[in-house]
Each structure stands twice: as structure tokens, then as C-alpha cells.
């Protein structure tokens, strides 16, 4: 029987990095205030002591240090870059749009970019419009990138290890409100392949496709709905690019109803992509109700706690949407 420890999401991320740095001397870490400050969200903690010279505090120059990480990756290193808030991807976007994801392709396959960009994403912290966004759809629009958004400590550790070992640039979105959540993680080395969804709960009446922070929200909603006799299946995508569409289709064929839930704004969000993919597949013929998307309002994230809660999906809204789908 494998030993399991209850640890936080933040520790799971940290343990994945520590273990990979111990097994591979090419792995190193760069970012703003990840050394003695211990990281803006306390993810890196004492790593700068454990790995001298391999946990590098950078100037506030995201384009510069992400570019440096890409150059080092091209030369065979495996850098992990921390972007303090995923919103700051805006100031290094050339690197994540035109450079890292294109080099393997446009250089005819001779160059690899084994880079991980970790970024704290999502809202719920009252940090307002420039520190709360969910930008995954924009990133999933870039062939050559991989985009990961784990919801549990177990998934975070296993997926981060796979991301570090992957030979492509991976954007690893860590939900900042999940950092302190706890879960069981085995103490042996394990990885979770990128591109595989996980059925977090099986059910027969309605499929909830979601990821990141909305996974616990959907699981709570599923509990509530079960008491009303509605059985929900919760599909956690875990990796957003490449997306495990077969897992979605299979679940939809079983439950015949689909609700997509994400924290990102609705317009141009992944809900549209998922919905269209189902509509284009044979799963469409199984649907007993129209596909439904539940997402944040199409506004910047507001500051006031009342407003922030107001624009976001929550358990109550998920329950209401499912009830409507059940007709």
C-alpha cells in the first residue's frame, strides 16, 4: 500500500519542482521574488537554499527573462519560469506567441523548447481587473504551446512533472485560490500524462466539463444535485491544449446533457470550442437538451467582493443551470 500524504496544492507544485531539480541538473527556476521572498504566493519557499544558483531572482522584466529561458531551453536546459500573475503574460507575449511555440516548427524540427511557464491565474482574491484574469483560451489559440490547468494537489504534482519533462513549451496555470487547498499525494515518483482528462465524479444525468478552480465548485454542485435525484458526471480536463475531446464525447453520449463551466469570460472562451467540438461529433446525436455554457460575465473582473462574486459562476449558478438542462 503506497504511502499518501495530505499536502497543499502549493506544496505539490513545489515538490514537483524540487524532485525534478534533484533528478535533472538541467532544470532551474527563474522569476520575480522567488528566492528569499519565497514567491509572491509562497510556492518556492526555501528552494533557493536547497538549490544554490538554480533559483534565480530576476529583474521585473518578463519579456527579457522569458526570452532568456527560451534561449536556455533551445540549448538543452529545462527552465521553469514563474510569472507572478498570469495577467503579466501580456508583457512577454511575443515570447509566448512568436518565439517559444514556433521555433520547433519553423526551424524544421531541429530545435526543441523544453520550457515551463508557471503562472498564477484566476480570480476570487479581490485583486481586480489586472491580476485576476483567466487567459487560457487566448493561449490555447497558439499551436505549439501546451496549456495545463490542474485542480488538485495530486494532479498539480503529476502534471507539473510531465510538463518539466516535456520537450515543448508548456504554460502551467495555477489557480491562486487553490494554492492552500489540500489533497492526498503519494510519496513515490509519479507523473500524469498531458492531454488526459480525469473523470472526477461519475454520473448518469448530466456532464459537467470544467477545469481548474471550477472543478471543486462543480463537485459541490453535483453533491447538492444528487440530493434532488440528479446525477452529474464531472469531467476535469486538466490539460486544455491538447484537449482530451474523446473523454468529453464519451461522457456526453452517456449522460445526454452537457454543461460547460469556466471562470474565464464567455465570449471566445473554451466553452465555445468544447461546445462546437461536441456539435461536430457524433455525440451531438445523443443530446437531449441544448448545450449550455456557464462562464464569467463578459466584463473585466471587478474589484468589489460583491461584484466579483456576481460575475463568476458558483455552486448555486451551476445547480440552477443543470436544473434547467434537466427541464
Amino acid at each position: 500500500m503506497a504511502v499518501q500524504n495530505e499536502i497543499t496544492y502549493a506544496q505539490a507544485v513545489r515538490d514537483a519542482m524540487r524532485e525534478e531539480m534533484a533528478r535533472d541538473p538541467d532544470v532551474f527556476l527563474m522569476g520575480e521574488d522567488i528566492g528569499v521572498y519565497r514567491g509572491a504566493f509562497g510556492v518556492t519557499q526555501e528552494m533557493y537554499r536547497e538549490f544554490p544558483g538554480r533559483v534565480i531572482d530576476t529583474p521585473i522584466a518578463e519579456a527579457g527573462f522569458v526570452g532568456v529561458a527560451i534561449g536556455a531551453a533551445v540549448e538543452g536546459m529545462r527552465p521553469i519560469v514563474e510569472i507572478m500573475f498570469s495577467d503579466f503574460i501580456s508583457v512577454c507575449f511575443d515570447m509566448l506567441l512568436n518565439q517559444a511555440p514556433k521555433m520547433h516548427f519553423m526551424f524544421g524540427g531541429k530545435v526543441q523548447v523544453p520550457l515551463v511557464v508557471r503562472a498564477a491565474a484566476g480570480c476570487g482574491t479581490g485583486a481586480a481587473a489586472q491580476h485576476s484574469q483567466s487567459l487560457e483560451a487566448m493561449l490555447c489559440h497558439i499551436p505549439g504551446l501546451k496549456v495545463v490547468a490542474p485542480s488538485t494537489p495530486y494532479d498539480a504534482k503529476g502534471l507539473l512533472k510531465s510538463s518539466i519533462r516535456d520537450n515543448n513549451p508548456v504554460i502551467f496555470l495555477e489557480e491562486k485560490t487553490l494554492y492552500r487547498t489540500k489533497g492526498l499525494v503519494p510519496d513515490h515518483d509519479y507523473t500524469i500524462p498531458l492531454g488526459q482528462a480525469d473523470i472526477k465524479r461519475t454520473g448518469s444525468d448530466c456532464t459537467l466539463v470544467t477545469y481548474g478552480r471550477m472543478v471543486p465548485t462543480c463537485l459541490s454542485a453535483a453533491n447538492t444535485l444528487l440530493k434532488e435525484g440528479i446525477s452529474c458526471e464531472v469531467v476535469d480536463l486538466r490539460t486544455l491544449l491538447p484537449m482530451d475531446k474523446p473523454a468529453i464525447f464519451e461522457s456526453v453520449k452517456k449522460t445526454k446533457r452537457l454543461l460547460i463551466v469556466h471562470e474565464a469570460v464567455k465570449t471566445g472562451g473554451l466553452g465555445g470550442e468544447i461546445s462546437a467540438s461536441v456539435a461536430e461529433s457524433d455525440a451531438f446525436y445523443y443530446l437531449d437538451a441544448p448545450i449550455r455554457r456557464l462562464a464569467a460575465w463578459d466584463t473585466p473582473v471587478p474589484f468589489s467582493a460583491v461584484l466579483e462574486k456576481g460575475v463568476l459562476p458558483d455552486e448555486e449558478k451551476v445547480c440552477a443551470a443543470v436544473r434547467e438542462l434537466m427541464g
Binding site: 519579456a63 527579457g64 522569458v66 526570452g67 532568456v68 529561458a69 527560451i70 534561449g71 536556455a72 531551453a73 533551445v74 540549448e75 538543452g76 536546459m77 527552465p79 511575443d94 515570447m95 512568436n98 518565439q99 521555433m103 519553423m106 526551424f107 530545435v111
Partner: peptide, 22 residues
């Protein structure tokens, strides 16, 4: 030859990264 670049400027940061690896 680690690439001509269609964007003006990033060659400098990329070269810094290669130099860091070295």
C-alpha cells in the same frame, strides 16, 4: 544558426539564454 527572426528584438534575449546555458 539558431534562427533568423521575424520579430525585431527578441534575438538578444534568446542569445542571453543560450549564453546562460553555456
Amino acid at each position: 544558426v539558431l534562427g533568423a527572426n521575424g520579430i525585431v528584438g527578441p534575438s538578444m534575449a534568446l542569445a542571453c539564454g543560450a549564453a546562460m546555458a553555456h
